[in-house]
């Protein structure tokens, strides 16, 4: 399955958003997620099943004005 994570295509065998995040090195990171432009809360990641072509955003705290 190919999914677009932060603008970069990834091949993933996992389908659950939580598993995909772990696969990409985000375990224990303070991040927030959205799939196809919709916010997905931390508690909903395990039950969020990704499909081919999904767009995932993984955001973290950053400097801002």
């Amino acid at each position: 399955m190919r999914i677009l994570v932060n603008g970069v295509w990834h091949e993933s065998s996992a389908a659950g958003l939580d598993l995909v995040l772990a696969e990409l090195g985000y375990q224990d990171a303070v991040v927030s997620t959205a799939v196809n432009g919709e916010f997905v809360a931390t508690g909903a990641r395990a039950r969020t099943q990704l499909v081919n072509g999904d767009r995932v955003e993984v955001l973290a705290p950053m400097q801002g004005g």
Binding site: V30, S32, E57, L59, A60, M62, G64
Partner: peptide, 22 residues
């Protein structure tokens, strides 16, 4: 202080250090 959100790299995790500092 104001802060923002930006795409985080799973490898670099630069946001984590910033959040710790804040």
């Amino acid at each position: 202080v104001t802060v923002s959100l930006r795409r985080e790299s799973g490898a670099e995790r630069s946001g984590q250090a910033f959040w710790s500092l804040v």
